[in-house]
Protein backbone atom coordinates (compact mmCIF):
# COMPACT_ATOMS: atom_id res chain seq x y z
CA UNK A 1 0.00 0.00 0.00
CA UNK A 2 1.17 3.55 -0.71
CA UNK A 3 3.03 5.19 2.22
CA UNK A 4 0.68 8.19 2.44
CA UNK A 5 -2.41 5.96 2.38
CA UNK A 6 -0.93 3.88 5.19
CA UNK A 7 -0.21 7.10 7.10
CA UNK A 8 -3.82 8.31 6.66
CA UNK A 9 -5.23 4.99 7.96
CA UNK A 10 -2.70 4.95 10.84
CA UNK A 11 -3.62 8.49 11.97
CA UNK A 12 -7.37 7.77 11.71
CA UNK A 13 -7.21 4.49 13.66
CA UNK A 14 -4.93 6.11 16.29
CA UNK A 15 -7.40 9.02 16.74
CA UNK A 16 -10.34 6.60 17.13
CA UNK A 17 -8.34 4.56 19.67
CA UNK A 18 -7.42 7.65 21.75
CA UNK A 19 -11.03 8.95 21.64
CA UNK A 20 -12.27 5.55 22.83
CA UNK A 21 -9.71 5.51 25.65
CA UNK A 22 -10.92 8.88 26.94
CA UNK A 23 -14.52 7.58 27.02
CA UNK A 24 -13.27 4.42 28.75
CA UNK A 25 -11.35 6.46 31.36
CA UNK A 26 -14.51 8.38 32.23
CA UNK A 27 -16.60 5.18 32.35
CA UNK A 28 -14.15 3.41 34.67
CA UNK A 29 -13.96 6.40 37.02
CA UNK A 30 -17.78 6.36 37.27
CA UNK A 31 -18.07 2.65 38.16
CA UNK A 32 -19.24 1.66 41.65
CA UNK A 33 -16.67 0.34 44.14
CA UNK A 34 -15.87 -3.38 44.06
CA UNK A 35 -17.44 -5.73 46.59
CA UNK A 36 -15.65 -9.07 46.64
CA UNK A 37 -15.92 -10.96 43.36
CA UNK A 38 -19.55 -9.94 42.77
CA UNK A 39 -20.44 -7.99 39.65
CA UNK A 40 -22.10 -4.62 40.00
CA UNK A 41 -25.67 -3.99 38.85
CA UNK A 42 -26.02 -3.69 35.06
CA UNK A 43 -26.02 -0.19 33.54
CA UNK A 44 -27.17 0.56 29.95
CA UNK A 45 -24.54 3.32 29.58
CA UNK A 46 -21.69 1.09 30.76
CA UNK A 47 -22.96 -1.71 28.48
CA UNK A 48 -22.97 0.70 25.50
CA UNK A 49 -19.43 1.91 26.28
CA UNK A 50 -18.32 -1.69 26.72
CA UNK A 51 -19.73 -2.62 23.29
CA UNK A 52 -18.09 0.47 21.71
CA UNK A 53 -14.80 -0.54 23.31
CA UNK A 54 -15.09 -4.09 22.03
CA UNK A 55 -16.18 -3.36 18.46
CA UNK A 56 -14.60 0.06 17.75
CA UNK A 57 -11.82 1.11 20.16
CA UNK A 58 -10.01 -2.24 20.47
CA UNK A 59 -10.02 -2.96 16.69
CA UNK A 60 -8.84 0.66 16.10
CA UNK A 61 -5.93 0.03 18.48
CA UNK A 62 -5.02 -3.17 16.62
CA UNK A 63 -5.21 -1.35 13.26
CA UNK A 64 -3.08 1.53 14.61
CA UNK A 65 -0.38 -1.03 15.56
CA UNK A 66 -0.53 -2.86 12.21
CA UNK A 67 -0.52 0.32 10.08
CA UNK A 68 2.19 1.82 12.32
CA UNK A 69 4.46 -1.22 12.01
CA UNK A 70 3.86 -1.28 8.22
CA UNK A 71 4.74 2.44 8.03
CA UNK A 72 7.94 1.93 10.05
CA UNK A 73 8.96 -0.99 7.83
CA UNK A 74 8.12 0.79 4.57
CA UNK A 75 9.73 4.08 5.63
CA UNK A 76 12.77 2.25 7.09
CA UNK A 77 12.29 4.07 10.40
CA UNK A 78 13.41 1.25 12.72
CA UNK A 79 16.86 2.84 13.16
CA UNK A 80 15.36 6.20 14.27
CA UNK A 81 15.48 6.88 18.08
CA UNK A 82 12.14 8.72 18.05
CA UNK A 83 10.38 5.58 16.82
CA UNK A 84 11.69 3.47 19.71
CA UNK A 85 10.56 6.07 22.27
CA UNK A 86 7.17 6.11 20.51
CA UNK A 87 7.01 2.28 20.61
CA UNK A 88 7.64 2.26 24.39
CA UNK A 89 4.88 4.86 24.95
CA UNK A 90 2.49 2.94 22.65
CA UNK A 91 3.20 -0.29 24.58
CA UNK A 92 2.40 1.48 27.88
CA UNK A 93 -0.70 3.09 26.34
CA UNK A 94 -1.85 -0.33 25.10
CA UNK A 95 -1.35 -1.74 28.61
CA UNK A 96 -3.37 1.16 30.04
CA UNK A 97 -6.17 0.44 27.55
CA UNK A 98 -6.04 -3.25 28.51
CA UNK A 99 -6.26 -2.36 32.22
CA UNK A 100 -9.21 -0.02 31.64
CA UNK A 101 -10.99 -2.66 29.50
CA UNK A 102 -10.43 -5.33 32.16
CA UNK A 103 -11.80 -3.08 34.88
CA UNK A 104 -14.86 -2.19 32.80
CA UNK A 105 -15.50 -5.87 32.07
CA UNK A 106 -15.43 -6.58 35.79
CA UNK A 107 -18.13 -3.87 36.12
CA UNK A 108 -16.60 -2.54 39.32
CA UNK A 109 -14.69 0.63 40.03
CA UNK A 110 -11.17 1.35 41.08
CA UNK A 111 -10.49 -0.90 44.03
CA UNK A 112 -7.76 1.19 45.56
CA UNK A 113 -8.79 4.82 45.82
CA UNK A 114 -5.36 5.83 47.12
CA UNK A 115 -3.10 8.04 44.98
CA UNK A 116 -1.19 4.87 43.93
CA UNK A 117 -4.15 3.71 41.84
CA UNK A 118 -2.92 4.75 38.39
CA UNK A 119 -6.30 4.18 36.69
CA UNK A 120 -7.51 7.41 38.33
CA UNK A 121 -5.12 9.27 36.05
CA UNK A 122 -5.94 7.34 32.86
CA UNK A 123 -7.51 10.36 31.12
CA UNK A 124 -4.63 12.84 31.63
CA UNK A 125 -2.06 10.08 30.95
CA UNK A 126 -3.82 9.27 27.64
CA UNK A 127 -3.80 12.94 26.55
CA UNK A 128 -0.14 13.42 27.58
CA UNK A 129 0.88 10.24 25.73
CA UNK A 130 -1.06 11.35 22.64
CA UNK A 131 0.77 14.71 22.69
CA UNK A 132 4.24 13.15 23.10
CA UNK A 133 3.61 10.50 20.44
CA UNK A 134 2.33 13.14 17.99
CA UNK A 135 5.38 15.38 18.59
CA UNK A 136 7.71 12.39 18.11
CA UNK A 137 6.03 11.26 14.88
CA UNK A 138 5.46 14.69 13.33
CA UNK A 139 8.43 16.82 14.47
CA UNK A 140 10.86 13.85 14.81
CA UNK A 141 13.05 15.83 17.28
CA UNK A 142 15.56 12.96 17.73
Amino acid sequence: MDYLWLKAFHVTSFAVWIGGMLILSLAVSSLPAATGSDAAAPSPMIDAISRWNRWVTSPAMLLAWVFGIALAAQGDWFSAPWLWIKLVIITLLSALHGALSGRLRRRTGILDASPRSFLRFAGPVTIASFLIVTILAVAKPI
Binding site: M61, W65, I90, S94, A95, G98, A99, L100, S101
Partner: peptide, 13 residues
Protein backbone atom coordinates in the same frame (compact mmCIF):
# COMPACT_ATOMS: atom_id res chain seq x y z
CA UNK B 1 1.64 -6.03 21.97
CA UNK B 2 -1.42 -8.31 21.94
CA UNK B 3 0.09 -10.19 24.93
CA UNK B 4 0.82 -6.97 26.88
CA UNK B 5 -2.75 -5.76 26.23
CA UNK B 6 -4.24 -9.13 27.28
CA UNK B 7 -2.02 -9.30 30.38
CA UNK B 8 -3.08 -5.80 31.50
CA UNK B 9 -6.74 -6.65 30.76
CA UNK B 10 -6.61 -9.93 32.69
CA UNK B 11 -4.64 -8.52 35.64
CA UNK B 12 -7.06 -5.59 35.94
CA UNK B 13 -10.08 -7.90 35.63
Amino acid sequence: LIYIWTLAHTASF
